[in-house]
Nucleic acid binder design. Structure first.
Lengths: 138, 138
DNA sequence: CTAGGTGCAAAGGTTTTGCACTTTA
DNA sequence: TAAAGTGCAAAACCTTTGCACCTAG
């Protein structure tokens, strides 16, 4: 536990972020449980539940700082809320419509044929594949 | 011009929508110029510029009605604004980060290998591919 | 005439910001 | 003790809603 915190502290420091109590707690929640897809609201509630009172504003700020530092990624799946993904490796997502749930696509041999070239003066920053799911009618 | 309006009126009627002045004008703006990617705000401004005063609320309502009717599609590219796409055929997009611009991927032989199965009880509603672009540094 | 549509303004939800206070190094 | 981070509340967005008025069939 102390070890885990030390690891997180080091990681934050490496990203140029001061390891404050709030950032350590949030990073801990984010990375302790494997890959996660969270909204600001959800992380805020988890932090409160975990006995770490953090203001919503700080959660916003922190998640954006983590994003800039490349520790997490923003997912654009739905236009009302911002989802953050703790898995920054190259992978793609299911999105369950109606339930607003993001899932990793498990066995990732998904590939794209004939990926187009970027227009002149542009380069590809990232390719997102989102497979939208709906509940099957019985 | 009268012809075009008649066409649009018929189309709206077929979708169960009364062809009101506002809906005709908006449909006209949306479909007259080929495939487009617009926000509510942009369409509202275009309508005003075209001398068709329409309230923002009506643009929102109308675009949602058109979406439900299957005339247009919602694009989730960026989490702050909703983009609507007038091209409902199966195709994908570039998104220029920083400039917040949506472009169709032109020659569409893009294909996905090993598309995963939907989890139990779910079916695939739609697959979105978004290629995020950034300006190349010289 | 009447069901449906529109406009306005107000409310709702998410995200950002300003500023005083606190904490880290 | 500086410099950076945090919390609160207010503000800034984008979007939806309620209700009185208008309009197409």
């Amino acid at each position: 536990m102390a070890d885990a915190n030390l690891e997180i502290e080091t990681r934050l420091r490496d990203c140029g972020l001061r390891p404050t109590r709030q950032r350590i707690a949030l990073a801990d929640l984010l990375f302790a449980k494997g890959d996660r897809h969270l909204t600001v609201e959800e992380l805020h509630e988890e932090a409160s539940a975990a006995g770490v009172p953090v203001s919503l504003a700080t959660v916003y700020n922190t998640l954006h700082q983590f994003t800039e530092a490349g520790m997490i990624r923003v997912l654009a799946v739905e236009s009302s809320k911002t989802y953050f993904d703790t898995n920054i490796s190259d992978h793609h997502h299911f999105f369950v419509e109606g339930r607003n749930e993001v899932l990793d696509i498990p066995i990732n041999n998904l590939a794209i044929d004939n990926l187009p070239k970027a227009p002149d003066g542009m380069e590809i920053a990232h390719v997102d594949v989102i497979i939208r799911l709906r509940e099957k009618k019985a």
